[in-house]
Design a protein around this nucleic acid. Structure first.
Lengths: 404, 404
DNA sequence: TTTATTTATTCGGTCGCCTGACGAATCAAT
DNA sequence: ATTGATTCGTCAGGCGACCGAATAAATAAA
């Protein structure tokens, strides 16, 4: 049922293109599928029948109103498989469920268990199971799970290497424990990277191949999408722009430790600068922004300075990777008042201004991005052609002259 | 002869994998090819015969010494096609010729015609033709040409958009004129990008998927190789790090115009800073570096400061894309004394130090990179599977809930 | 009711690949 | 020199997957 019997490469490619057409044009008849894919009607019937036997496809009525015989319409069946997206934030845990066609079936969230570590993993297991059962999906039918997490995720091992905001996770084998608990393979990815992918799938950056996503919340971070692919970096540390040498002397102790930019623009940096500038006591960086809006001149100065430094960081990123779109996100970055200020500074900075957009998915961006990756992994499991698609590698420099 | 008769997808894939094996393991027998590719001996004979008829492959002797019947050995034939790499520098014009197997057949260079514009194009045509004829290759057998040029190359049109160092090129249809003159399609690419690809193919960055190439010469620039692909940026302006907001107030006039970093670290910047610091008259930035080596304290200070700023720029790039290797290149950047200084500052800056290498190809990097791209384009023309290789796109967000 | 149109199935025919058998060519041992 | 072992390469037969043409079935329009 799960893994189809071995088929030839040709048939794999046919199945793949039929699946793609079903994904984008359902409900659709077999005749139309044949036209779209370029395959013959006969082959189409064979492939669709095989899909139906696997439970990948189901009938949804017939055509009507047109001249000629009516056609049976098909669409991807939810029975084909489900995927789970998880966003593990310091404060909030969000889980979403989708089917193989990318239809989002349900979403749920809770406050993150503050005890951290194993308690957090238990909470994820409980919430995921509940979401699946509430949607008449047995957890075993979930075939791909992706979780957004703060910190650096090692691109080779998939382990969390720095998770400053959630206690006790960096010493656990999160992938192994969660995979076992949930019963299907779990993949971790940095939360900002997934928020970026969320905006690209369902948000403000659809159909763009080069995107920079600047997230400003409790910390500062960057997600990069270049040549239509996510940039992870060799150690998963791409986008750690807290360490940009902007906003202070990069040789000083504070800067080396947490990063120059982070020291100034991160939540604690904003609060500290507000206090140093003579502002009264505040609890969080959000309060500083609110006071700036209600007329506090000291807060306004601090916010302006924050926007200026953020724009400098954005200018550095733009000079480096030349994105088509810059997305501002995160609890602070997505504020329209703040984004405006950044845009205005950026306009003065660069000769070639980049289009700036603010996140449209907001705090949902992470889960949506997790869903998109989980979905892509499921599709690749069924219809991947990685070994065929590989670029033809060039010969090594060893041979220099031909033998005569 | 040139374009083989239409074949099925299956046969295309077989041909492709046979070609790849020939590229990397020639000379090789049909029996071994069958083992390597997994195809049957029968199919192998068919494919190799077809290749031989196209002139893509030729016999080179037989095996001997082993038990059993001797085998005919094959290798890719130079008749299969040639490629041309061109590096158009402000001072030097370099051209190189290679065959379809990537064997570099010849290389030649001249001083660039200082009159620029059409004269330069004429010079390129003459030098290329001479190189081809000297190697018994009729120019018409060259099937792919790539030229390295300073300035920004528009990734969509392929036109030069800013070429400060060579006069009169940005107003010409360089691609069209050169293609006509040389008789085969010409593709332009930024010189630093190609130098980077040269180091990846034959130089100091082989088998690395994430590389940053920092070039310091008359100007400052960056080449980025991420996820095994070159980063061009949306406008071909990726790597224009002269505009990094480092080394000065980015809102000042000079910075906005030519870029903060370029203003300080570019050749004219180094000379200016040396003069401002009280140094005597110099002709070029190279002289400043030489005086620093011979004990001039003012020059030493200027060089140290240049290295410091370069390291800051490198740190910014590292924080953004997290490369595995940082390559220092260009006439200044490749100087071992300078590279050492940069490495030392960088060690103090970043928590996670990156491996630093200096260019091993030097001024040849550009041509070699041009050859590598020309070769890849030729291979793709014959054996590309672009339409198969495409990633399965995710469905758009339109549909939200399944029909019951 | 007839006609035009469209859907779907059945029936050969082709292409490309594989397997197994067999002849050809060589080294090694007798 | 003969024989045996081994490897290379070809031939014949069969299979999977594709297509086009012919045909049956179902429907809207005339």
């Amino acid at each position: 049922m799960l893994s189809p019997p071995i088929t030839s490469v040709t048939r794999q490619l046919s199945r793949r293109s039929v699946f793609e057409a079903l994904l984008h044009r359902s409900p659709i008849s077999r005749a139309d599928l044949a036209k779209v894919t370029g395959l013959s009607k006969q082959t189409m019937s064979e492939v669709v029948d095989a899909f139906a036997q696997q439970g990948l496809v189901r009938q949804v009525g017939r055509t009507s109103g047109n001249v000629g015989r009516t056609a049976v319409l098909y669409e991807l069946s939810p029975e084909g498989g489900h995927v789970l997206g998880i966003d593990l934030g310091a404060r909030r845990l969000t889980v979403a469920l989708a089917d193989i066609a990318g239809r989002v079936l349900a979403e749920a969230d809770e406050s993150t268990d503050e005890r951290g570590g194993a308690w957090t993993l238990d909470q994820i297991g409980r919430l995921s199971d509940r979401l699946a059962r509430d949607n008449h999906t047995h957890p075993s039918r979930i075939r791909s799970i992706v979780m957004a997490t703060p910190g650096v995720v090692n691109p080779r091992t998939g382990a969390i290497e720095m998770a400053p905001n959630i206690s006790g996770l960096d010493h656990l084998n999160v992938v192994g424990l969660l995979s076992e608990k949930l019963g299907s393979p779990v993949v971790l990815e940095n939360d900002i990277n997934l928020a970026l992918l969320g905006e690209i799938w369902h948000g403000c950056a659809q159909n763009v191949d080069n995107v920079a996503f600047l997230a400003l919340g409790s910390g500062v971070g960057l997600g990069l999408y270049v040549n239509g692919r996510l940039v992870r970096g060799e150690n998963g540390a791409a986008g750690e722009i807290g360490y940009l040498p902007i906003g202070g002397d990069p040789l000083q102790a504070e800067c080396r430790l947490q990063g120059c930019l982070e020291y100034q623009v991160g939540a604690t940096g904003v609060v500290r600068r507000y206090r140093e500038a003579g502002g009264s006591e505040v609890e969080s960086e959000r309060q500083v922004f609110e006071r700036a809006l209600s007329g506090d001149p000291i807060a306004a100065y601090v916010v302006d300075e924050t926007a200026r430094l953020t724009a400098l960081a954005a200018a550095a990123v733009i000079a480096t990777v030349d994105p088509q779109v810059l997305v501002l996100g995160g609890s602070v970055g997505a504020r329209p008042d703040f984004a405006d200020k950044v845009a205005r500074v950026l306009l003065q900075l660069s000769a070639r201004p980049v289009e700036i957009r603010t996140s449209t998915l907001g705090r949902r961006a992470g889960v949506v991005g997790a869903l998109s990756v989980a979905l892509r992994r499921l599709h690749d499991e069924f219809f991947g052609v990685a070994e065929l698609a590989a670029i033809l590698p060039l010969p090594p420099p060893a041979q220099r002259s031909a033998r005569q």
